[in-house]
Amino acid sequence: MSHTAHIRSHRKPRRSASTIAMRTGVAGGVLSTLAVAGASGAAHAAEPVTQTLELPTLTADLAAQVAQSADVTQQAAASYQLQAERDAAAAKAAKQAKADLAEAKKKAAEAKKKAEEAARKEAAERTTLSASADTGSSSTGTGSSTSTSTSTATGSAAAVVSFVQAQVGKAYVSGATGPSAYDCSGLVQAAFKQVGISLPRVSQAQSTAGTQVGLDNLQPGDILYWGGAGSAYHVGVYVGGGMFVGAQNSSTGVVERPLSYDPPSGAVRVL
């Protein structure tokens, strides 16, 4: 027997290859599991925390309501714009109407002024005749006075004179025929109506209603006119003594004045 036969070997027994492989696999699996867990933890630690808000879902009904609201708003805006345009047009029309009225008044005033100037010029041309009518004149060799003297009216003429003198102080109103107010032809018509004589209503017709007489041959009750015969713009009644009564204008009303105050153009005799 060998002298080494009872001495144990100091070498460790050789392990089988399958055992080694198995242990190696287990260790690898554990390490892999740890690695994955570590990576997952790191990922969760690094990921920021966010809050998710849920927005309302735009449904078909809500969309229809929004569209309808938009239409209403658009229609309201169009209505406001139309109203603004109408207001602007109305303001412009009112402004134009005011300007037109002012222009019409201006032209009317100018026309009236021209008519008055023309009447005054025509009256001035008859100054000599009217002066003769105011002072009166005596017929040569007879000593009789003309009809413009202070002779007293009688009969119907006296009634006409009395009537117009009773209206002195009353108002002048265009188109009025009494009893509280008159215009010029309304007064003359009313005076002759008292004695049963129907005269035309307007001055133009009254200036040709009787027989034309000269201003130097007037009698109480004669109708005086201003302007042309048939185109007169004013009338009055001669009351004798170089005086007449007439509804002159809105400022003076019915007055009694001398012929020189406003010399007439002519006269007609109805009585």
Rank of each mutant, 00 (worst) to 15 (best):
A176Y: 03
Q96Y: 06
A133F: 02
A232E: 01
P200M: 06
G196R: 05
T140M: 14
S251Q: 14
V173F: 10
T73R: 09
I223W: 01
R11T: 14
A205M: 07
A42W: 15
V188N: 01
S18K: 12
Y261V: 09
Q212D: 07
G136D: 10
T140Q: 13
P56T: 08
H44D: 12
P56E: 05
T127P: 11
P56K: 06
G253Y: 10
A78S: 12
A77S: 09
G169P: 04
M243Y: 05
S40P: 00
A115Y: 08
L53M: 14
V235S: 06
A232H: 01
A78M: 01
P48A: 15
S144W: 03
Q204L: 04
N249F: 05
E110Q: 00
K114S: 08
Q68N: 14
K107H: 15
V268Y: 01
Q65T: 15
Q74C: 13
G178A: 05
V255F: 05
S151L: 12
K95E: 13
V30N: 03
Y261N: 12
S250K: 14
K107Q: 15
G175W: 09
A181R: 00
G266N: 02
V36K: 03
A21F: 08
A111N: 05
T252G: 06
G253Q: 09
Q204I: 01
T4D: 15
Y172A: 00
E256L: 11
E54S: 11
E54M: 07
S138P: 07
A77L: 10
A89E: 10
S137W: 15
V268A: 04
Q167M: 12
M22W: 13
G38A: 12
Q96K: 10
V254N: 02
R257L: 13
Q206G: 04
K114E: 14
H10T: 02
Y238I: 03
A104I: 05
M1A: 14
S18Q: 12
K92V: 05
G214K: 07
N217K: 09
A97I: 04
T57C: 11
I20K: 08
T24K: 10
K112D: 08
E47A: 14
V235K: 03
F163P: 02
F244H: 05
A90M: 08
E117P: 04
I20Q: 09
A166R: 11
D216A: 11
Q204N: 04
Y225L: 05
